[in-house]
Write a protein that binds this DNA or RNA. Structure first.
Lengths: 151, 151
DNA sequence: ACGCATTTGCTCGTATACAAGCAGATGTTG
DNA sequence: CAACATCTGCTTGTATACGAGCAAATGCGT
């Protein structure tokens, strides 16, 4: 469809101006995340991506208060509470009250939790590989850089 | 730390070999999605990203069976059921039984739903802009292309 | 010492998200 | 027609995810 706008310039108006859901960044971020979660579940036995993230963060930083652990794993206090509770039920973490600050619940790995993390690590890396398998190495690097910039 | 491997080549082993959660694609996809959902909620009044996606898809394709609608918006049957139910409660969609196939619940926009979509559209586009505001136009195009390839 | 803002962890309510399993409708095939 | 697989929509159970609001502990300033 050819029209002429107020400035006298020809403009093209085709069906492609309609909002196409499948081209939206937000929709595709959601789908990409869904796909990664599914791939992760296929590779990693007994841990969700969020649960693995908590184990990884404690492994990386040592014992942390529950809220701080949530901040470092991108979960609010309501969410981290449930995740820690489920990891505790599996015997992978334990929490204790901090002596000098009675508000803090220090969450740490149990020996079983450390083992579980080390076992899951290779599986998580395999999941990561499958997630990005359609990209070349250069594309992966570009994508990771842009994703980091986006956050 | 300097070591020599079986081939006699010097290799560098530093702290950066440890698993860094914040560098993981999966973790960052999750965070990027969280960020977009938060930005979307700030811009779009009364609709979640998934609810908006359903309205957009019906607007794009016309009435659809509930399951097909779910497939086209990346939701399984349990999820789409709840989303449609909440949109129905808001009066934005209505569903009716298909005459020729008694299994199908055809979901369509109400006039209010059409209006709501048209109102939300500009807000959704503004949310998209804010989501990608830290990227240049070229970077946005690259990111969208790689994201599409990833899915 | 006291008041006050902040932090922490909690609960409740709402909204995705998926696995698993169900019953009813349909279509296909012997 | 009868057997069968498939598709549809449903329910239950589990797991994030966040807003809002709560009480207890802390620390800071006066």
């Amino acid at each position: 469809m050819q029209t002429v706008n107020a400035l006298g310039m020809a403009t093209e108006t085709t069906k492609t101006d309609t909002y196409r859901l499948s081209a939206q960044v937000g929709f595709n971020l959601r789908r990409a995340n869904q796909r990664h979660v599914a791939i992760f579940a296929k590779h990693v036995e007994g841990l969700t991506p969020t649960q693995f993230a908590v184990l990884a963060r404690i492994h990386e930083c040592g014992a942390l208060s529950q809220n701080k652990l949530g901040r470092l794993t991108a979960m609010d206090s309501a969410t981290i509470k449930g995740v820690v509770e489920r990891l505790r039920a599996k015997g992978l973490v334990q929490s204790s009250l901090d002596q000098s600050d009675q508000r803090l619940r220090l969450v740490d790995l149990t020996p079983a939790g450390r083992t579980a993390f080390e076992t899951a690590l290779d599986q998580a890396l395999a999941a990561r590989s499958e997630t990005v398998e359609r990209l070349t190495d250069d594309e992966i690097a570009t994508f990771e850089a842009l994703l980091a910039k986006l956050i």
